[in-house]
C-alpha cells in the first residue's frame, strides 16, 4: 500500500469528513469522485499534509505522515493544484526548478544535476520548448503541463492531482490524460486524482473512491464501482454506463436528473 487512510475525521466550518478509510495501492491510478463540496480537495490536502486530521491516521508506506518531516515528505509526495497563480512573473524554468526545493539544503542553490532533473521533467511533459517563457503568458493546457513538470522535479513516487483537466479544452484534456497514464506507467508514479470528469476517470483510473457528504460511498476497481446505480447515488443523475469498443474503456452518458 502506498497510502492508507484509516478512520479519518476532519471538520472545517460547516463541512466535515467523517470516518474516511481509503487505501491506495503502489503504482495505481486512483480517482476521487463525488459532487461539489463532498470533500475531494480537502481529502487531497489531508493526504499531502497541508491539513492535519482531527482523528484517524494517514500513512505513506505504513509510516504516519504526521511524523515525516516536511522536506522528507515533499521528496516522496507532490501535489498538482487545481490552479496556480504566482504573484510574480516567474519563467517556466524558474517555476519548475522550485520543485527541487525539498532536495536542497537551507542555503544551497540548485546545480547542474537539478537543472537536468528539471529539463527531464519539462521534456516528459512536452514543455521543454517553453522553458524560457514567462509562466503567465502560457495557455491553460501549457500551464497545467508545466505545473505537472514542477511536481515531477520533486522526484515523487506519489502524485496528488486536483482536477488536473478542469480548465482544459477537449484536446488538452486527452493530452494531459495521456501524459498522466504514461508517467504512471513509465515512472511508476502512484497517482490520486480528484475529478468531476467521469469519462476521464473511466479511461485513466484503475481504482475509484466515491465520496459523498464527507463519507466514502464505495471504493474498488473502476469496472466494479463505476455503475449506473453508483452514479445515481452519487450525483442523483440517471446515466448509461457502457463499455466503448473504440475507446477501450467504460463511458458514462448522463441522461437526466433523477
Amino acid at each position: 500500500m502506498a497510502l492508507t487512510v484509516t478512520h479519518l475525521d476532519f471538520s472545517y466550518s460547516a463541512f466535515a469528513l467523517s470516518d474516511v478509510s481509503v487505501s491506495v495501492q503502489r503504482g495505481s491510478l486512483t480517482g476521487l469522485l463525488g459532487p461539489n463540496g463532498c470533500g475531494k480537495t480537502t481529502l487531497l490536502k489531508l493526504l499531502s499534509g497541508v491539513l492535519r486530521p482531527r482523528h484517524g491516521e494517514i500513512a505513506l508506506d505504513g509510516r504516519p505522515i504526521a511524523g515525516i518531516p516536511r522536506r522528507a515528505l515533499a521528496r516522496r509526495l507532490a501535489v498538482v493544484p487545481q490552479e496556480t497563480h504566482p504573484a510574480f512573473d516567474y519563467s517556466v524554468m524558474e517555476m519548475v526548478l522550485m520543485g527541487r526545493h525539498p532536495h536542497l539544503g537551507a542555503f544551497q542553490l540548485e546545480g547542474p544535476a537539478d537543472l537536468a532533473v528539471a529539463r527531464d521533467a519539462l521534456d516528459a511533459t512536452g514543455t521543454l520548448h517553453l522553458a524560457e517563457r514567462p509562466y503567465m503568458t502560457l495557455s491553460g493546457g501549457e500551464k497545467q503541463r508545466v505545473i505537472i513538470a514542477a511536481a515531477l522535479t520533486q522526484s515523487p513516487d506519489v502524485l496528488l492531482l486536483d482536477e488536473p483537466t478542469a480548465s482544459l479544452d477537449l484536446g488538452y484534456q486527452l493530452e494531459v490524460a495521456a501524459l498522466l497514464a504514461r508517467l504512471n506507467r513509465e515512472r511508476a508514479v502512484t497517482m490520486v486524482l480528484a475529478t468531476h470528469d467521469l469519462n476521464l476517470a473511466a479511461s485513466l483510473c484503475d481504482t475509484l473512491v466515491l465520496l459523498r457528504d464527507g463519507r466514502v460511498l464505495l471504493q474498488g476497481p473502476t469496472r466494479d464501482v463505476l455503475t449506473g446505480a453508483a452514479i445515481k447515488q452519487l450525483y442523483n443523475v440517471d446515466a448509461d454506463v457502457e463499455f466503448h469498443q473504440r475507446a477501450g474503456h467504460l463511458t458514462v452518458v448522463p441522461v437526466r436528473r433523477a
Binding site: 497541508v50 516536511r70 507532490a78 504573484a87 526545493h101 525539498p102 536542497l104 520533486q154
Partner: peptide, 23 residues
C-alpha cells in the same frame, strides 16, 4: 537571509510551498 527560497514558493501559493517542504 533565511527567507528567499521560501518567499519564491510562498509567492506561488502557500499550499504549494507547504507541499514542497516549506514550513
Amino acid at each position: 537571509a533565511l527567507l528567499p527560497s521560501s518567499l519564491n514558493l510562498m509567492s506561488v501559493g502557500t499550499d504549494v510551498a507547504a507541499t514542497r517542504g516549506v514550513d
